[in-house]
Write a protein that binds this DNA or RNA. Structure first.
Lengths: 196, 196
DNA sequence: GCGTTACCGTAACGTACGCTACGGTATGGG
DNA sequence: CCCATACCGTAGCGTACGTTACGGTAACGC
């Protein structure tokens, strides 16, 4: 035998470097060389940790999902009522501030990549459906009197609104800033009260 | 003197070829060689018509804007009332069917490219604001009793919802199909009636 | 009809990419 | 203490990209 490496730690460091590059240079700027430079190693080490570039992409996509999931968990846990939990999770997902907008840009990058890469498309679809499921649960908790169909429709609508805000804020944060996002979300949630 | 070319026609043909490639292979597959092959010429001719690749991209972006604008015009003109015009323009922009989804994928590609290219970012922002302005006018026509601030907020919210539906339908048309889009849009427009 | 000139196809250059083969090196077990 | 082996840096291969230089070619003015 010889020296054993901490493979999980390397994967973590490399996917963090991947994400850093992705946020800074966008998906076209994401090269093995750029990742290696950011991680302080060589492309040889990168390709010894991940089989190929796609494996690196998949791992980075999972990392993004974990980050957004953790942020959503935190927002949900800090809320004082089901409705506030729904509002907090949705608002945070719309990327109102610059910090979250970096994540949003990475998300957009992976979205565009998914259009040409079936593996990334499957992941993206899967993660998005989990988010819809989460929102459906929160809608159900906030408005238990709604029927299942109405709950599901409300959840997909709210997710669409939030992802739209997310997307538009990436390229026009002036028009879709924090205030615009909040008022859009408040209006949608107010309709939840009055509609039925 | 020597032979004169029809530069405008060449630009039209080339940007159509560009768009065709863009829809089929995505933005990473958009190369000068692919465009030339699709247009039935060589890369030399492409770069004699457009100064460089970015000029080609800008022209293709303008073409996409014209197409979506024309489709919106048609939907608006065919409607029988202001509210129906608003509904029709929004619904068509959400890319409910496969034909429109091709345009939506190109749109997503340009969105992602805008994150790394300031020129494309300016164009994207500008075109998007024109769409918001159009929707604001339609909201105002459908609900003239609303104040300017409420009209503006409603328009940005509706645009965000539609772009979210658009984006999500690209990667998960099963969840965000025609029915889901219609019910999401109808709910948002119904809130327009009951809210004030 | 002929020369001039605009036009565009050909070919190649420089660069950067993903990926791989190979050799040095450090670290574990005996 | 030393050898075997897992690890990874080095260097380079093949490819594809954007871009450019150059020469052939076809059309217009005279």
């Amino acid at each position: 035998m010889a020296r054993r490496r901490d493979l999980a730690d390397q994967q973590r460091r490399l996917s963090a470097a991947t994400w850093s590059v992705l946020a800074e240079r966008g998906l076209p700027g994401l090269t093995l060389r750029a990742v290696a430079e950011r991680a302080g190693c060589t492309t040889g080490m990168v390709l010894h940790t991940f089989a190929d570039k796609q494996a690196l992409l998949v791992h980075a996509r999972e990392l993004l999902h974990r980050r957004t999931g953790q942020r959503a968990d935190a927002a949900q846990a800090a809320a004082s009522s089901p409705l506030e939990a729904l509002r907090a999770v949705l608002f945070q997902a719309a990327s109102p501030t610059e910090e979250e907008r970096e994540e949003a840009r990475v998300w957009v990058g992976f979205l565009a990549a998914a259009l040409a890469d079936p593996v990334l498309a499957d992941l993206h679809r899967d993660y998005n459906r989990r988010f819809v499921t989460r929102i459906r649960g929160l809608v159900s908790a906030a408005r238990p009197e709604l029927g299942p169909a109405e709950t599901a429709d409300t959840a997909t609508s709210l997710v669409a609104l939030v992802e739209g805000l997310n997307t538009l804020a990436c390229v026009d944060p002036e028009t879709y800033g924090e205030q615009a996002q909040r008022s859009a979300l408040d209006a949608a949630l107010a309709a939840l009260d009055t509609e039925p």
